[in-house]
Simulated assay, not measured.
Amino acid sequence: MTITVIKPGMLSSFQDMGRHGAQHLGIPVSGAMDTRAHRLANALAGNAAQEATLEITLTGPVLRFETPACMALAGALLSPAINGEPIPNNRPLIIRKGDILSFGVRQAGARAYLAVHGGYDLPPVMGSRSTFLGGGFGGLHGRALRKGDVIPLLSALPEGGLDSLARTLNDMRIYLPAIVGFASRETLRLLRSHHTPLFTEQSLKTLLSTPFRISPHSERMGYRLQGPRLSMHEPAQLLSEPTSFGSIQVPADGNPIILMADRQSTGGYPKIAHVAAIDVPQVAQGLPGDTLRFREISLEEAQSEDVRREQAFARLDQELGGFHDLLRTATT
């Protein structure tokens, strides 16, 4: 029950919902950059949200399935195909022994997520299968995929009955609310930070009225932004404190950094704002050169959006319940 890596792609690594509870030890949370797409791929493949997916960045891998499986892709549109035939995102699909999954031209987004029913057979490290590339642990040998890697699976589908199962999946109608799908917003929503009063009023106005461009020096640790400099009323020495996904730090050069999945566990730079959790996945799908605009919302509005997202995932899980039961019955 394995998958063979024929080509690794630009950067393909296994991620889950993150390695929580170890930041006090200096261990980053890591996990999927776009948690919404990660969760959607898992739901469509009949997995729990915490199951690891393969995070695929820009140029996808070429993978040969050595066993039949049910798979699903979500997130960026990277022109996926099985044996050269185009396949859609956001659908559970049957893939047979010997089939080749490949990717082509990027159409939108930066990161896609591949889930396989039953999950990947990877050893958890500190309770997570996420790959921390900087530390060299988690995922598959603590690194991105390489040519010739063999990825073990936890379960497989039997050879018999695949045609019938494929027809059942093809006939399924799946309604995806916009809040759980891949979508683009013109303006990202922000919340003020407890450090916001340290910045000049003009800096906050600039952040909320001026477009910023994603710098080429952006990666899983943080997205550096290019635009007008943001400044404080006066220099201040701050105690280091825990960091969070989506916080916008401003170092001495005045160029903001949005902290992402592999962010450091603590930091002492002042934080002018936080990207609302509902919009962090859109940041993760951005590319160097893309423009980001921001607007302020209240904590109550941000919490309301989080509730809406969780309700949408709960409805989706309920809708897919019969399909999940079918997969569990068929899986060996």
Rank of each mutant, 00 (worst) to 15 (best):
S215Y: 00
I278S: 07
S79G: 06
L114S: 05
A314Q: 10
S240Q: 03
L198Q: 11
S155T: 14
F132L: 15
L191F: 04
S164W: 09
L225Y: 03
L78S: 04
Q107A: 12
L239E: 13
L259S: 14
T210Y: 03
T187Q: 07
E234G: 11
K205C: 15
R192F: 12
L239Q: 09
S203F: 06
D34N: 03
E310K: 12
I56W: 06
K147W: 13
F182V: 11
L73K: 10
I56L: 07
N255I: 05
I6F: 05
D317R: 09
L44S: 01
E300C: 08
G160A: 04
T131K: 00
Q303M: 06
L133Y: 02
F212P: 13
D16R: 00
A236N: 14
N47L: 02
I174E: 10
G84W: 00
I27R: 12
P61Q: 03
S218Q: 01
K147T: 08
G21V: 14
E85P: 07
R143G: 03
I56E: 07
L327C: 07
L239F: 13
K271I: 05
I214K: 00
I95S: 05
A49R: 13
L122W: 11
I248M: 14
Q15G: 08
D325G: 15
P92A: 04
R189H: 04
T53M: 03
R293W: 02
E234M: 11
A76Y: 04
R64M: 15
G31M: 02
G142R: 00
A43F: 00
G18S: 03
E159D: 13
T131P: 05
I100W: 07
P197D: 06
L54H: 04
T2R: 10
R213N: 13
E241S: 10
H324G: 09
H20G: 07
L153S: 10
I174K: 07
E234C: 09
S79E: 12
E66G: 14
L259P: 05
A144V: 06
R315I: 14
P270M: 11
D171K: 06
R263D: 05
L78W: 02
V29S: 05
G160C: 11
T187P: 00
M1A: 15
D163H: 12
R64I: 15
F323C: 10
G267W: 00
V250S: 15
L230M: 03
T57E: 08
P86Q: 06
I56H: 09
Q50F: 15
A302L: 03
G127R: 02
G21P: 08
Y223G: 14
A37G: 08
T196S: 12
P177E: 14
L73H: 08
